[in-house]
Design a protein around this nucleic acid. Structure first.
Lengths: 248, 248
DNA sequence: CAGCAGGCTGAACACGTGTTTAATCTGGTG
DNA sequence: CACCAGATTAAACACGTGTTCAGCCTGCTG
């Protein structure tokens, strides 16, 4: 749940054309890029250059002229979306640290295009997906540390692994739910996410609040089985899942 | 975790050519279908008919001759995989009810192709994905009911929503993890899943065993917020006996 | 044996794709 | 004005795709 809070705050930015990014060349280039982001989010990365060009009211050749290739356009969109995420993170720093998830979600409509694009990336895999997930893990690490320190969250045997799992779980669940039940109106990602939460928020928070099993036995059995909690050395099997995270 | 057990048992079948399905026409048709399943699992549903034909040692025209179109071939693969899942479910009924997840996973290699195909379907969305998830939810419902009755799992405010969430969460996490970190050898799905579990089993079971939050407050707040829990049980205050886990 | 249905194929077709090319238009500068 | 760099485009190119077509081969039946 902290992960969804995190995600919400991480995306609270609109995609209005601002002279922030590097190029700042012409307005047409930005218009094409914005159309591409929107179209990619709505119809996936298989969308043809011709369709994007039509959306932007421009010839296909101009798209290539400005970006060099479709892959380069895709990369430019990735960069733009990622930059928007980072920017919005700065703006919404600390807003959602508490846990008033619903209030944050009420404003979800503002950043719908970015969210749609990210979900599409999560389904397709690739650099945005990885970078986005790493960003969220990094943030969740901070939130979780604070929550543990404040006595809100329980400590974990392996804090790092837990943060990674919780983040992956939240995003994966959302992504799968959207894949299985695609919204009739891909424009309104806000409504979609709200629908998702309406169905899954209760079981999610229940699991987080009280767990699922009645005893710690399975956990302790597993801890005994691996016999080397991450605080110590390692031994036989368990192919050493090291948690490498850098890249802020 | 019960979901992963469920999934494991649900897939313990190989894709050997059996005269089970309707047609039972020629062996070549089945060979093409099997090659398609394998190739779709390995490289996604965008794979060209020519590639599949080459895999099966056959001309592209023959593929169309036998299945009519690529979409029809896709549908045939879906049906075949789904049938294999149902069949294997019958065979492995009750084997994994206990929870010896690791033993089941040791045999994961047998049903690797089916698993790969299902994961690809989960990423792409579509009928197999939906049907597969619904199957797994149905099974998980049974497992969970037994677990609750046996005192292994805690009861839920909304059993149905919990089963749906837990299943979606398990599958979504696996799917996302595989998307973000695609295996270098797509053949060996078994190794991939084992790697996934090596990294995420501990935090998953820890979450299931002890939860994440220290108090029920957020849950109770939410229950108060919606003010109509589906079971019609506790409504206003008096938030059920606290369920802090103690060692048995 | 003749004949024929069906598995099977190489070559082609129609089409959509990303990209290139040559040309036009436009706006600013000497 | 002449000129030029850049934005912009229509048309074409090269290619990969799913699919079709006409014919070959094979094995079975009369």
């Amino acid at each position: 749940m902290f992960n969804l809070v995190n995600m919400s705050s991480a995306l609270a930015a609109d995609a209005d054309p601002g002279p922030s990014s590097a190029g700042a060349s012409g307005s047409t280039r930005d218009r094409i890029r914005d159309a591409a982001v929107l179209r990619f989010a709505r119809s996936g990365f298989g969308t043809s250059v011709r369709t994007i060009a039509a959306d932007a009211g421009v010839s296909p050749a101009l798209v290539i002229h400005h970006f060099g290739s479709k892959d380069a356009l895709h990369a430019a969109c990735d960069e733009h979306v990622l930059a928007g995420i980072v920017e919005s993170k700065r703006q919404n720093m600390g807003r959602a640290t508490g846990g008033q998830l619903l209030q944050v979600l009420a404003e979800v409509d503002e950043y719908a295009p970015l969210l749609g694009y990210v979900v599409r990336s999560l389904q397709a895999g690739g650099d945005v997906a990885r970078a986005f997930v790493e960003h969220m893990i990094e943030d969740a690490r901070g939130y979780t540390r604070e929550a543990v320190a404040a006595g809100i969250a329980k400590p974990s045997v392996d804090e790092d692994a837990r943060v990674r799992y919780l983040t992956l779980s939240s995003l994966g669940t959302l992504s799968l739910a959207l894949t299985l039940n695609p919204p009739e109106d891909p424009e309104d990602v806000g409504a979609t996410v709200r629908t998702f939460l309406a169905e899954h928020y209760l079981p999610m928070i229940e699991l987080y609040a009280q767990g699922f099993l009645t005893s710690r036995r399975m956990l302790d059995d597993y801890l005994l089985y691996v016999s080397d909690p991450p605080t110590g050395g390692e031994s036989d099997d368990a192919p050493a899942p090291e948690t490498t995270n850098e890249e802020p």
